[in-house]
């Protein structure tokens, strides 16, 4: 079957029930989305499908409708998305393993809600688990990114 990831079309030969996460990681060598729990409880695998945040471990690739964007397609080290730039400025990451998912979720949040309150950030971001405890800086970085995006 065919799927489009970060603007590139790929052809893969897999069973339709294989979750998108494992098609990305093991078939297409796109390793930004991470395996953490496999059951939509940690958010480390979050990608965008047509701009909406989706836990790629939950989506059977046969049910994929739309274009996939992973962290690699959001921004690059040379050209950061505003959320990534805020993450660097606030030195958010510790181990960093959950941060691909955190950043993809935060970018989707700001797309729907350009100026979220702390309460709204809590409601949206609590599906993304961080075991290192980077939460205070995640909150600060989202506010900062929202500010930068509104000025742009």
């Amino acid at each position: 079957m065919k799927l489009t990831v970060n603007g590139t079309e790929h052809e893969v030969d897999v069973e339709p029930e294989m979750p998108l996460l494992w098609v990305l990681r093991d078939e297409l060598d796109i390793k930004g989305p991470k395996y953490g729990c496999g059951i939509a409880q940690c958010g480390a695998c979050t990608v965008h499908v047509d701009g909406m945040a989706v836990r790629s471990c939950q989506l059977p690739v046969g049910d994929l409708e739309g274009e996939v964007t992973t962290i690699e397609g959001l921004g690059t080290p040379e050209s950061l998305h505003a959320v990534q730039a805020a993450w660097v400025a606030h030195q958010v990451a510790q181990c960093g393993y959950c941060q691909s998912g955190q950043i993809m979720q935060a970018a989707a949040l700001l797309d729907l809600n350009p100026a979220p309150s702390d309460e709204e950030i809590d409601a949206v971001m609590s599906g993304n688990l961080c075991r290192c405890g980077t939460y205070p800086r995640i909150r600060a970085a989202i506010h900062d990114a929202a500010q930068k995006l509104s000025e742009a």
């Binding site: 930004g32 989305p33 962290i71 080290p77 030195q91 958010v92």
Partner: peptide, 9 residues
């Protein structure tokens, strides 16, 4: 390592 960890690289 911050830039790599914020870009999935």
């Amino acid at each position: 390592d911050m830039l790599r960890k914020c870009t999935g690289t």
